[in-house]
Amino acid sequence: MKEKLQALLSLATEEINASSNLKDLEDLRVKYLGKKGEVTTVLKNMKDLSQEERPLIGKIANEVREAIEVLLENIKEEKKASEIESQLEKESIDVTMPSKRLIRGHKHPINVALDEIFEIFLGMGFKIAEGPEIETVYHNFDALNAPVDHPSRGLSDTFYITEDLLLRTQTSPIQVRTMKNQKPPIKIIAPGRCFRNDEIDATHSPMFHQIEGLVIDKDITMADLKGTLDMFAKRLFGNQTKTKFRPHYFPFTEPSGEVDVSCFKCGGEGCRFCKGSGWIEILGCGMVHPNVLEECGIDSTIYNGFAFGMGLDRITMLKYEIDDIRVLFENDIRFIKQF
């Protein structure tokens, strides 16, 4: 009996080691350890043994069974691992082949730049005001202290619909509407389309975009204006950006100024991009003219404020080094997909 069991073990060991796949192993498990398996059969025949022999043989039989089980388990794991391994090998791919990616849509670059500007001003506590593209002469010019005979009012500069209605030439009428509808404090930016009677070429478009800002409260100063725009420029063009405030003239602000930023291409040393000056003009600004405040129903002896405005198309073109404004409105998707 004992010999038989040992012979079974060595035979099983031999066969298990020789088996080539998981299915053979399963067959061997059934052959030795199954209900009618050879080891099982030995154990079933124990009843024929003597009292003395029974525990001894029983122990050996169990040991043989366990040994075969361990053997099977080990070899099974090995086999499984190697089978997976060879499967993986077969499934090998060329990772340099093209990907299957979803194509997402892209915002128009003007709106990409606008979003960035929104982000900066929202963070500084500004709200976003909007207004109509068709405006009254009053909102676009009169209320903004524009001289009656100013050339910008002419048919050669402004698109008219009637004597009193026009396509807004600036986003400033949004400021007028805001001041008329809202009591200070006011802190808004106003983006939008504007129109001027310019023939289309590389640097002119009859339709363009502006974004303006307006802050009205008690005790607003030019220092506040400078601080706000300096922070804006640093956030839009990078922390190393320097700003230069120069006096200028606009009818709706007094004092007025223009802001140059240090050239972000050369850092201010002078290059082709900034035409050698080291500076790039980006916006106009000033303290809201008392005439404008009064016209909009705000007491200029109590309140004052500042306003600023810039060409969004120009900012977009500067930011992305676009040298022809026409491509902005051609809407070739090979252009739009770059942003």
Binding site: F118, F121, L122, G123, M124, G125, F126, K127, I128, P185, K187, V215, D217, I220, T221, M222, A223, D224, K226, G227, T228, D230, M231, K244, F245, R246, P247, E254, P255, S256, G257, M287
Partner: peptide, 26 residues
Amino acid sequence: VEEVARIYGYEKIGMTLPKLDVWGAK
């Protein structure tokens, strides 16, 4: 004001942020 400011020098004017009781939101 502009005459004083420009001859004084815009560059000498300080930089502060307006202190307003408003918040920014869409």
